[in-house]
C-alpha cells in the first residue's frame, strides 16, 4: 500500500515494447472497418476522390491501433498476446485484478496509407496515488502509445487513462 514499487517506478517515461506491425496497412481491413460502421466516406472507397484530396488512398485515422492488435493465434507465439501490454504489466505489478479504461485521446498526424509498415511503442506517463472510487480501491495511470511510419514520421499518438483496482467484494471479473 502507499508508495509505488520500484519495478513500476522504473517504467515511467521510458519507451517500452517497441514493435513493428506484423503486416502492412491494407485495404481489406479498411473496408472491413468502414463496413462495420457503414462509413461511406469516398476517401476510402473511391480512388479518384482519394487521389484528388489526399494524394492517394488513406486509412481511417481511428484505425491506428487496429494495425497492432496481435492475431489470436500465430505459429511463432505460444500464448495469446495482449495489446497495450503496459496496462497489463501494471495490473500484475500493482496486484490489481480489475481494470477499466476511463478515457482515451487520439491525435492524428501524417495520414496512414495502404502499404505503410507502422512501428509503435508504449510510454507510461504517470501512476496516481491510491484512490477510492465506486468501483473499488486502486490507481489511475496514463499510457501513451506512439505510432510512426516506415519513414520515421509520426502518424499518431493515443493516450489512455486506466484505472486498476480491487473490488470491495473481490469476486473475480474481467481483464
Amino acid at each position: 500500500m502507499g508508495s509505488l514499487p520500484d519495478s513500476v517506478e522504473v517504467m515511467i517515461g521510458k519507451p517500452l515494447y517497441r514493435q513493428m506491425g506484423s503486416f502492412e496497412v491494407e485495404r481489406g481491413y479498411i473496408y472491413t472497418s468502414c463496413s462495420s460502421v457503414e462509413n461511406a466516406n469516398p476517401l476510402f472507397w473511391d480512388d479518384e476522390v482519394a487521389k484528388s484530396l489526399t494524394g492517394g488512398l488513406v486509412a481511417p485515422p481511428t484505425m491506428l491501433s487496429v494495425w497492432f492488435r496481435p492475431h489470436h493465434w500465430s505459429p511463432d507465439q505460444s500464448e495469446p498476446q495482449l495489446p497495450l501490454q503496459v496496462h497489463f504489466d501494471l495490473k500484475d505489478k500493482l496486484g490489481l485484478p480489475e481494470a477499466v479504461m476511463t478515457s482515451n485521446t487520439m491525435t492524428f498526424y501524417e495520414p496512414v496509407r495502404p502499404g505503410d509498415r507502422l512501428t509503435t511503442e508504449q510510454v507510461l506517463r504517470s501512476v496516481s496515488e491510491e484512490k477510492v472510487t465506486k468501483l473499488g480501491t486502486g490507481r489511475f495511470w496514463v499510457i501513451e502509445v506512439v505510432y510512426e511510419n516506415q519513414r520515421g514520421e509520426l502518424v499518431g499518438v493515443e493516450s489512455y487513462t486506466g484505472f486498476g483496482y480491487s473490488r470491495a467484494s473481490n469476486s473475480g471479473g474481467a481483464r
Binding site: P42, L53, P61, V100, S103, T105, T107, F108
Partner: peptide, 13 residues
C-alpha cells in the same frame, strides 16, 4: 464531407 480531416478525439466511456 471527405475533406474534413480529424486532428484529435477524446472519449469518456
Amino acid at each position: 464531407g471527405p475533406a474534413g480531416r480529424l486532428g484529435r478525439m477524446t472519449f469518456q466511456m
